[in-house]
Amino acid sequence: MQRPPVPSALMSHPAQLAPSTAHRDDLTSSLGNSGPAAAALTVEAATVPLFNQEYQPPQIVQGAVTNLVFTVDNSANAITVGSLGFTANLPAGLTVAGGGARSVIGMNASSSCGGTVTATPGASSASFAGGSIAPGTTCAVSVPLTSTSVGTPGTVSATLTSSVGSVAASAPTTPLVVVVNPDGNVTFVQNSDDDGTFTFASTAASLNTSITTSGGTGSVGPLDVPGGELTPSRKRGLRALATQR
């Protein structure tokens, strides 16, 4: 059966077409009418990712290096959170490590959150900017730190800012403890009338080294010195020895 033609007035204004009379807002059945159906959608705002910090390792000797790892946890969100950033202000006695004799391979500032980490050796603060984190994931920013002060440094303060808000870092589960270094370090300085290579031997194999002088002087160090008594020997006249314990 063919449908009757649609009036030309309605053809020129299709938005004016009335809904079909067969359309209902409720359910009818042999048992009766269900009444109007209703549905509501609630969209909750994304929460700020969790932000915590931990020392790895949580105990070091004076002058050694620990990584302070800031973890961003976006497990509760179904969206990517961007514009991640923070500044970590270090307490007295704690500084950014790097560039010295005790620098440790692999202990460099890093980020799995993208962005840029700024951590200048010797500085009392470090910063991170321009990061992002995918939904349902975690990422971390790591900063190498060092201290020569025995004891437990104060709190590192840092507040994470993001596209969904900000949150202060929680305190580490285990605080950093700096213990007395039973070892020391030594720098050897060779002064000579005749340039050449001068060797130094010790009961500590780590101190077996040599110095090549130029212009009447040369040096090597600082070298880590293990604790205990050492018996040094020298060849070709080691003239000067500077030791720091």
Rank of each mutant, 00 (worst) to 15 (best):
G184N: 03
G196Y: 01
N33T: 13
V69A: 05
S103Q: 12
P19I: 02
P36E: 05
A119W: 00
T87W: 10
P175T: 08
S132H: 04
V167N: 02
G82H: 02
G131I: 00
L160Q: 03
R239S: 13
L223H: 02
S75K: 14
P5G: 11
G114S: 10
L41S: 07
S34E: 08
A22E: 12
V189C: 03
T197K: 02
A169P: 03
A140T: 13
V220D: 00
T174D: 07
A37C: 00
P175R: 11
D224E: 07
G151T: 09
P182L: 08
S8D: 13
T21A: 14
V117L: 10
Q16E: 15
G136K: 06
G131H: 01
G63E: 10
N52Y: 05
C113A: 15
G100Q: 15
D183Y: 09
T203Q: 09
M1H: 08
D193V: 00
F70N: 01
S30D: 12
V179N: 15
V117S: 06
G122L: 01
V43Y: 10
A37N: 14
S30A: 11
T47K: 15
V179K: 14
Q59M: 15
D193T: 07
A205R: 08
S149A: 12
Q2I: 10
A242C: 11
A204M: 08
C139Q: 00
S112F: 03
A15S: 11
G184Q: 03
G221N: 01
V61A: 12
S12L: 13
A126K: 12
T146K: 05
H13I: 04
T212C: 09
A204F: 15
L17Y: 04
A39I: 06
A201H: 14
T199A: 13
A22Q: 11
T152S: 13
T47C: 07
G93A: 13
Y55H: 14
S157M: 07
V72F: 01
S124P: 02
L230F: 12
T80R: 15
L223Y: 01
V48W: 06
R245S: 09
A45M: 03
E54L: 07
S162A: 13
T212E: 13
A18V: 11
A92D: 13
D26V: 02
V167F: 00
P121F: 07
S206L: 11
N185W: 13
V43G: 01
C139F: 04
P153S: 15
V186C: 08
N77V: 05
G122T: 06
L84S: 01
V143H: 02
I211D: 00
P226E: 04
G122W: 05
S12A: 14
I60M: 15
P58Y: 12
P5S: 13
H13Y: 06
Q244K: 14
P121A: 06
P36Y: 10
D26F: 15
T120C: 01
Y55C: 11
A76W: 09
R24I: 06
D73P: 09
A88Q: 10
T173M: 02
V72T: 04
T87P: 14
V61Y: 04
N208E: 11
N67W: 00
